[in-house]
Design a protein around this nucleic acid. Structure first.
Lengths: 196, 196, 196, 196
DNA sequence: ACCTAATCGAGACGGTACGTCACGTCTTCGT
DNA sequence: ACGAAGACGTGACGTACCGTCTCGATTAGGT
């Protein structure tokens, strides 16, 4: 007998996971449309075949739903390849990262999440988590490079990571320059030179 | 007469410029508040002592008003100092740039402009112009460094510029790391090493 | 084994009379509050400490619950006194009837039952039964008067009854005039004169 | 010049009388349907070709709209005929009053207004006003009868009025007896006898 | 002493109406 | 003829109840 367990952990009907999934799927689908004002509670509810109240029962805010919908797809692959040398690994990482943004739906969602994060704390947290995973992956890659002597011992790896992702977000959001393979190569070159 | 006073004394006809100023001032003031949903057409109109229609007569969209209101303050100084050496110039530039974001109102406005730019083309254009000026300033600084031999001849200056501002925007928008003087110094170090 | 009953008499848990009582009590209590929108299925259920489904299992409609809750209290005394003369009996009857409405809870319930009866057939039936009992009592009183010669032989007793209760309901529902003792006396006078 | 008049009586677009009429007409039309839950703000708005907000701009509550919609039809004829003798005038008045309720739509609306008046103060006021006009008409008729000696000098005319209308409302709301011509005649007889 | 089945409190479900807010358009009147 | 005031139609928002549908727990026969 566990004294800390409540006597009655739950009564009543259980939360419908089908509804939860449907809501998050519908939200994600709507987020992929370029029109950012398509994401309406009504639209989500009717696309999910769900009552509006069911959404409000579980999420305090539209932003929170959006955040959850994005978070469950954030597990998506962080491109991580071990091709052999540090330089090619870094290049591959950046090329893959940039390439992902060629999908207009993904670029649109990423722009929307950054935008929404400025107004909604739930989305902000998702953005923080989302980016942290990617930063950690890149940092591990750089760490391996440093351990192998490809980067100098006094290189500020965290700053290098932010320089890399900074270029990605800066160009994504301002749109003044391309995020193509050649940009990825050039960025890789500068980063590798930097930490040396 | 105080141009910054919130209440514009009632004027008759032919004072359209006064109304225009009042609208842009009010919009800018509202943009400086941390609450991003404070910027309402109604709020602007009543803060400016202006009819709503007067706003719509001159601007097609709320975003356009916001864009204009931001643009007129975008002339703000780009920190440019010639302290002698490339390294100290670059450090000073970045320190000054980061320092500007310590003002919460400025940081808030910058976040809002990036956010709004994702949904409104007028704001997007303002953001592009705003950042272009700063990129040009930094690029000129780097160019002087390259000319002086502080940066290698094959350094991709545009990429270095984006790496610098990328860090600034990335941290501003995601908020995972500080934008303080020590960060500026570290960034300057990595950038200088990179282009060498 | 009972050959005549084709099916099992009953299996499983029996209906909880405690729940039934609690529901009707709670409903009656809520009906006594002046706020007519206080009578909610949720409010009844939680006031009775009962699940909502338990209500719906036994009553088809909120109106039916209300009807039942009212019906069990409808047995309340019909003021019937034999003071001796017809005139004083009639006066006493009307004074008592009017006096009952001085209780705000009773007046509120009576108003609500009339109101609800217009939309719900269950309540309508209860109202019909409730009033029929009272009409019968008053009619018997008048009949005694007619038999004793206090009312003429051609007096329409049913109409006189409706004239008496009509005043009560009309003033209760419209609220343009008081239902006090003096009104009761005046009404008794006019009624007695009428049937003569 | 009137010192009490405001300096600026009105600016801006004027209230649309067409919208007002359309709203009240649509509400009245919906009220005439037997289903009392047909009267929805949405239904009113769309039947009137009007935005929902336009309704809320001018009426605080659905009940207030309903009240107004009913009030504008309350001017409907109060049956007043001078046929010569008091007895026939009274009979005609009551016969006409009862006859009006043969129209199911009118009876339904009257039931709904009494019902709604118990929950909404706006409707209550309309009901009070509506009935006051009719009471006044009947009272004037009785007054003429009293002046002519058809009713005794000590008859309580207000009570007689309430006895008459009381029968009408009581039977309308409880439904236990008919409101036909024969009832009107019998009521007239009893009333005339009463006041004598 | 089980087994079966109906009821219990609890509470989530898909809906519908509510009343509020902001939008962008359209009158009206005063200057 | 411009500008403030403000009403207009529209549509999303978040809340309150509705009546239905699960849950695990409880309770009363029948075996």
């Amino acid at each position: 007998m566990d004294a800390t367990s409540p006597r009655r952990p739950h009564t009543g009907r259980r939360r419908s996971d089908a509804a939860r999934e449907a809501i998050l799927d519908a939200t994600f689908r709507l987020l992929s449309s370029p029109a950012s004002d398509a994401v309406t509670i009504d639209a989500i509810a009717s696309a999910a075949g769900v009552g509006r109240q069911t959404i409000y029962r579980w999420w305090p805010t539209k932003g929170a739903v959006v955040a959850d919908a994005l978070a469950r797809h954030a597990r998506a692959v962080v491109p991580e390849r071990h091709t052999g040398t540090f330089t090619t690994d870094l290049q591959a990482f950046l090329i893959d990262s940039f390439a992902g943004l060629q999908d207009p739906a993904f670029a649109s969602r990423l722009r929307q999440i950054v935008s929404a994060a400025q107004q909604d704390e739930h989305v902000a947290r998702v953005l923080t988590d989302f980016t942290a995973v990617r930063r950690a992956a890149l940092r591990a890659l750089l760490q391996r490079g440093q351990d192998a002597g490809d980067l100098g011992p006094d290189a500020d790896l965290d700053m290098l990571v932010d320089m890399a992702y900074g270029v990605l977000y800066y160009r994504l959001l301002v749109g003044h320059a391309a995020l193509d393979e050649s940009a990825a190569r050039s960025l890789a070159t500068e980063l590798a030179r930097s930490g040396r």
